[in-house]
Design a protein around this nucleic acid. Structure first.
Lengths: 219, 219
DNA sequence: TAACTATTCAACTGATTAGTTGAATATTAC
DNA sequence: GTAATATTCAACTAATCAGTTGAATAGTTA
C-alpha cells in the first residue's frame, strides 16, 4: 500500500465522523442522548421527526458506532456508545460558536431573552452554593435527572413546575438549569417562577459543563 | 420564535461544522494546514487533487470560517482561522480511532510496519531527552518546522535525508518525528537511517501532541 | 392465536454534493 | 502591453443524502 492510498483510506474513515454529524437531526439526537438513554419514540417526539426518519438516522449513528442500544420489552433504548461523543459535540459547538455569529444572536434572543433574563455562570454558582440563600433545581425530564445531575439539585421537570413550585422555599433564590446553554427549559422555569413572586435565575450550564468544570478543578 | 424553530436553526448551524468535515479531502486540507500555512498549489499537490477541486474545497472551508488567507504576490496562503480547529480534528480522530477498528489496523500495517518499527511514546521521550545519547529530528518540510516544532529538534526534511544524514552524530540514537501518528515521513526516515547503520526510532507524536502534552503538564 | 405496539426496511422523489472541464480573473514579470 | 502564473468560477454529470410512504418485522398482551 502506498502513502496516498493509506491517506485516502485514513481520511475516509476520519470523515465518516463528519459525515454522520453533517445532519442537524443526527446532531440533535446525539445531544438528546447525552442527557440520558432514550427510546425511538421519545427521540422522535423530542426532535420532531417521524418514527421512520428517526429510526433511519439512528441506524446511521449505529453504523458509525456512536450509539448502541439495549432492548426493554418492545422498546429499543438507544444510548451513546462512547463518552467521547460528548467531547466531540462540545468541540463542534465550541468552534461553531466562535465562527458563526448567528448562533450567539439566536441564543441571546431566544434563550437569554435579549439579556432580560437573570443568568448565573457556573463559576459563580460554586460561590453561591456555599451560602444558604439559594436552591438549585433541575428542570429536565426526571429520567435525565436520574441519569446524572449537578450535585445538590432538586428535580422539578419544567412541565411539572405548576404543580410543585409551592414546595420551593420562598425565602431563597431559585437557580434553574436544564440541558445546557441551548436549552430553553430553564428560561421558561425562571420566567414562570418570577411570575409567582420568586427570585430566580438561569444557570448557564448543564450537567456536562458541570462535570467538565469539576474535572478541571481537580487537576 | 418557538422552541422548535430555534432548535432547528441552532442544530443547522452546529451541523455546518459536520458538513464541512464530511469530506475526506477537506479533512486532509485542514490537517495539512494545522502544520503550517500553505498555498493552493502546495495543498493540491500534497492532497493529490486538481487545483480547481482544491480551490473549491478551500472555498467551502472559507465559508465555514475554518480557514482564512493572506495574499503573497500571486499566492493565496491559506491558514487555520482558529486554533480550536486543531482541537476539533483531534476530537474527531480520537473517537474515530475508538470506533473504527480499521483505522488502527491501517496504522499498524502501514505506519508501524506491523510492529517491526521501533517506536517511542512522547512520555518516554521526555525521560530520554534529559540524557545525552539521543538526537531529535523533525522530518517534515522545513516550512512546517519553522511554523512550530518540538523543542530541541533539528530540521532534516525526509526528502533531504540522503544529503544531510551524515551530519548526524553516529554515536547517538536518532528519534524522528513528523506530522503525527498518521504521517509516514518518520517511518521512512527511521528505515533509511537504520539502513545507514544508525540506531533510530519513530516518535509517536507530532508538534500538536507535544504542545498538548506540555499544556497538561503545566496544570 | 389474534390484535396491538414499537421499530425497521425498501423504494421512491427531490435536493445536495464531489469532481471535472473549460473559461474567467487577478497579479506578476519582462 | 503581452505572456505567464496562480487561483477561482460556472456548468455539467454522477453519486449521495434526507424525508416520505407503505410494508414488513419483532415482541407483547389478552
Amino acid at each position: 500500500m502506498d502513502a496516498r492510498t493509506f491517506k485516502d483510506a485514513i481520511y475516509g474513515d476520519f470523515a465518516r465522523m463528519g459525515k454522520v454529524l453533517s445532519s442537524p437531526k443526527r446532531f440533535e439526537l446525539l445531544d438528546l442522548l447525552s442527557q440520558s438513554p432514550k427510546s425511538v419514540e421519545t427521540l422522535a417526539r423530542e426532535s420532531n421527526m417521524s418514527m421512520a426518519n428517526t429510526s433511519k438516522h439512528l441506524q446511521a449513528l449505529l453504523d458509525a458506532r456512536l450509539v448502541d442500544y439495549q432492548k426493554n420489552k418492545n422498546y429499543v433504548i438507544y444510548q451513546l456508545a462512547n463518552p467521547k461523543v460528548v467531547n466531540l459535540l462540545f468541540s463542534m459547538k465550541s468552534i461553531a460558536e466562535d465562527q458563526i455569529s448567528e448562533i450567539n444572536h439566536l441564543r441571546e434572543d431566544f434563550i437569554v431573552r435579549g439579556d432580560q433574563l437573570e443568568t448565573i455562570e457556573l463559576e459563580d454558582w460554586f460561590d453561591l452554593k456555599e451560602g444558604d440563600s439559594h436552591v438549585l433545581i433541575d428542570v429536565r425530564p426526571q429520567s435525565e435527572f436520574l441519569s446524572g445531575h449537578i450535585e445538590g439539585a432538586i428535580s422539578i421537570p419544567v412541565e411539572e413546575l405548576n404543580d410543585h413550585f409551592k414546595n420551593l422555599p420562598s425565602d431563597k433564590e431559585v437557580i434553574a438549569y436544564c440541558r445546557g446553554p441551548y436549552c430553553v427549559y430553564a428560561t421558561e422555569a425562571v420566567e414562570f417562577l418570577k411570575e409567582q413572586g420568586y427570585q430566580a435565575a438561569r444557570l448557564e450550564a448543564g450537567v456536562h459543563e458541570w462535570k467538565q468544570y469539576q474535572a478541571n478543578q481537580n487537576h
